[in-house]
């Protein structure tokens, strides 16, 4: 398609880059005016606790988006993990079950990556299919019933260490590990390279397939951890557990500045995006908005985030266009 008439200058770019921050400020002021309770510290901690599971999954999603992929199956993955955990906990202690179900989450991601890298099926269709397969499997594991968990799981979710709720600990640990991985390891930097230009990456000696497999496994693992955090807060998994979670997760990631087109973004932004999404939900609750409005608001936010991302990518492409005339001298 012929790119023409895109408003291309650095000012627009700057505004686009900072749209989420502006949005955040507007929301806080707006909700704050409508409900005084909204602006309390207690409420803020509450928001972060509630944002933790979305944030953790979105951190995994960040890896996938950085290589230019997508994973729509994270919500189903959560549900599989919950259902399997229900089975495991009948015989095994928590300390054994948790690592096992995280491994299952990782395997879920590995299956996705196998179809994507080996058979070259587009990522969105693979993960859309495994979304359904996963939910079916989870329903099967749970015997089509609601999975209830023992009080020990719930107490884990209610616990605090050093005055900080466990969900925030989990969120913080996943964030730090992800941040270190992306910014301080060869693997992390190669993720960015592959996202920017897979062909040049292969030429530079990067094992592109290995990177792709790894990011989908990471997304799977994060979905599992996020699922566990969420379980520890609600202690039951009904048949809608994790249903359509991919929406707020993608929203958080893209709002945080990670591009759907690959190569740009990072997990710090994702944390911000997740908190932003949860702030919206929390604000809607605080202002007694109609619950039916929530998905409308969330999808509108995703739309804005994607629009910003697309416009930004178009402008960057224009700015990088090769010129043949250089005024010499």
């Amino acid at each position: 398609m012929i790119a023409r008439g895109v408003p291309g200058n650095r000012t627009t770019l700057f505004l686009l880059q900072n749209t989420p921050v502006l949005l955040f400020i507007v929301l806080i002021v707006g909700f704050g005016m409508m409900s005084p309770r909204f602006l309390s510290l207690v409420n803020f901690v509450n928001i972060v606790v509630q944002a933790a599971h979305i944030g953790i999954i979105a951190i995994g999603m960040t890896f996938v988006l950085l290589v230019g992929g997508i994973d729509l199956s994270v919500g189903a993955n959560m549900y599989v993990v919950a259902a399997v955990l229900g089975l495991f906990l009948q015989d095994l202690p928590l300390s054994v079950s948790f690592p096992l179900v995280i491994a299952i989450g990782v395997s879920f991601g590995w299956v996705n990556s196998w179809f994507i890298t080996r058979l070259r099926v587009p990522a969105f269709i693979v993960t859309l299919s495994t979304l359904f397969v996963g939910r079916g499997l989870a329903l099967y594991f749970s015997g089509n019933k609601m999975v209830g968990f023992s009080p020990s799981v719930l107490s884990l979710g209610r616990a605090s260490y050093l005055g900080v709720p466990s969900a925030i600990w989990a969120f913080a640990i996943v964030f730090v590990v992800a941040w270190l991985t992306l910014s301080q390891t060869t693997f992390g930097r190669q993720v960015y390279a592959v996202g920017a230009d897979p062909e040049a990456s292969a030429k530079a000696g990067i094992d592109v397939r290995r990177i792709l497999v790894a990011v989908y496994c990471i997304a799977g693992g994060c979905a599992a951890i996020g699922g566990l955090v969420s379980l520890s807060q609600v202690a039951v998994a009904s048949s809608t557990f994790g249903f359509q979670k991919e929406f707020p997760v993608i929203a958080a990631t893209v709002l945080g500045g990670t591009s759907l087109f690959g190569g740009r973004g990072g997990v710090l932004g994702t944390v911000f995006g997740a908190v932003l999404i949860q702030t919206v939900e929390n604000g809607l609750v605080m202002t007694n908005a109609d619950p039916y409005l929530y998905p409308l608001v969330i999808s509108a936010i995703i739309f804005i985030a994607v629009l910003v991302d697309s416009s930004r990518s178009a402008i960057l492409e224009r700015l990088e266009r090769r010129q043949i005339r250089v005024e010499r001298g």
């Binding site: 058979l119 099926v121 269709i125 693979v126 299919s129 499997l137 329903l139 099967y140 089509n144």
Partner: peptide, 26 residues
């Protein structure tokens, strides 16, 4: 079959369709 299996089988069928499509294209 219950809903669960129907879900899972449908998902597999679509995945199969997409794989066939990718193979054809290759």
């Amino acid at each position: 079959l219950d809903l669960a299996s129907v879900f899972a089988i449908k998902g597999l069928v679509i995945l199969l369709a997409a794989v066939l499509d990718a193979l054809r294209r290759r």
